[in-house]
């Protein structure tokens, strides 16, 4: 039996999100998968070209409507539900975008959702983390049931470019509801690498003690070409903005190098960094749980160590 997989593109109107390429990589591990990407946008042309260039993609569909200028789940879900008929699987990234829209699609299709797929064991069998990643469950979806799922992006390498899939424009199948309206977004613009895709990440915790102390991490990050992250405690305390939070309820990341500075290592934080290739912990408490997962641990005062490292680079 072959699989026909529909992936919902995540984008900002201009650029395709990395999560979509990760979904393609996940879908490609389903045997004999034919992969279609659907782009809902006010003007889909630029994003559709990027989607069509992903290796393994057979076809790109575009649904254009002014309401899709912003990613509103209530507007996107009915379009996707109307298009989903012929597909065996409907996938989206496990980003805040995918987490918002995919369950709404699943409910409209009257089916369950498999959240945070980390491995595909068969067309209807998936592994996913539960209990903040402290257990891994294998779940099976009945063979005759459409699979709706979100893809845990840290578990997959992004599909490469180099494909040339055809792009087809489809008429918006439904008139979206008007009860939900986009007002504004405050995205911090930064020249630093994106937290979710950076090869190196420096994260700070409560022990930093202030937003000013976080500047020290930004300086080190700039020298390392790294992104900056933060623990929940640091974000709660106002030392760093929410989009930097790493962990169960923040971002799940998989950099080559993760440096945890003054982070004790609550299980909710550790679940966000499990897939990092090398974890470095700097903490003055030798008993901090972060040392249980660290490949390299350094016990000491971060206010002395961080500037020393910066000097040594």
């Amino acid at each position: 039996m072959s699989a026909s997989i529909l992936i919902i593109a995540e984008h900002d109107g201009a650029a395709l999100g990395i999560g979509t390429a990760k979904c393609v990589a996940c879908a490609a591990t389903v045997p004999q998968a034919e992969i279609t990407i659907v782009v809902c946008a006010s003007d889909a042309s630029a994003v559709a070209r990027q989607a069509a260039a992903l290796q393994g993609v057979s076809r790109v569909l575009t649904v254009e409507h002014p309401i899709h200028a912003h990613p509103l789940a209530a507007a996107i879900a009915p379009q996707i539900a109307a298009l989903a008929g012929p597909y065996t699987h409907v996938l989206g990234p496990s980003s805040t975008f995918g987490k918002d829209v995919m369950p709404r699609i699943a409910a409209l299709l009257d089916t369950a959702q498999v959240s945070d797929i980390m491995a595909v064991e068969g067309p209807h069998r998936f592994r996913r983390p539960i209990y903040a990643g402290n257990a891994i469950v294998t779940v099976a979806v009945p063979e005759d049931t459409k699979v709706v799922g979100t893809v845990r992006t840290a578990s997959f390498h992004a599909a490469a470019a180099g494909g040339t899939a055809p792009i087809e424009k489809v008429d918006a199948p439904v008139e979206p509801p008007q009860h939900t309206r986009f007002v504004s977004t405050s995205a911090a613009t930064s020249d630093r690498p994106d937290l979710q895709t950076a090869a190196r990440v420096i994260s700070g915790g409560r022990a930093l003690g202030s937003a000013e102390a976080f500047q020290m991490l930004y300086q080190l990050a700039d020298k390392l070409g790294a992104a900056v992250g933060a623990s929940r405690a640091a974000v709660d305390a106002g030392y760093a903005p929410n989009e930097l939070q790493v962990g169960q309820t923040g971002k799940i990341i998989a950099p080559d190098l993760y440096v945890a500075v003054g982070i004790s290592g609550a299980i909710q934080h550790l679940t966000g960094i499990k897939d990092a290739r090398t974890i470095v912990a700097i903490n003055k408490d030798p008993e901090a749980p972060i040392f249980e997962v660290a490949d390299l641990g350094l016990v000491g005062d971060l206010f002395e160590i961080v500037p020393q490292i910066e000097q040594l680079l």
């Binding site: 089916t111 369950a112 498999v114 069998r125 983390p129 539960i130 990643g133 402290n134 257990a135 891994i136 469950v137 294998t138 779940v139 099976a140 979806v141 009945p142 049931t145 499990k274 974890i279 040392f291 997962v293 660290a294 490949d295 390299l296 641990g297």
Partner: peptide, 16 residues
């Protein structure tokens, strides 16, 4: 809709 096939512990990281 979903059946639990099994629940397992996550892979442990090597001690550093």
């Amino acid at each position: 809709h979903l059946t639990t096939v099994r629940v397992a512990a996550p892979p442990q990281r090597q001690k550093g």
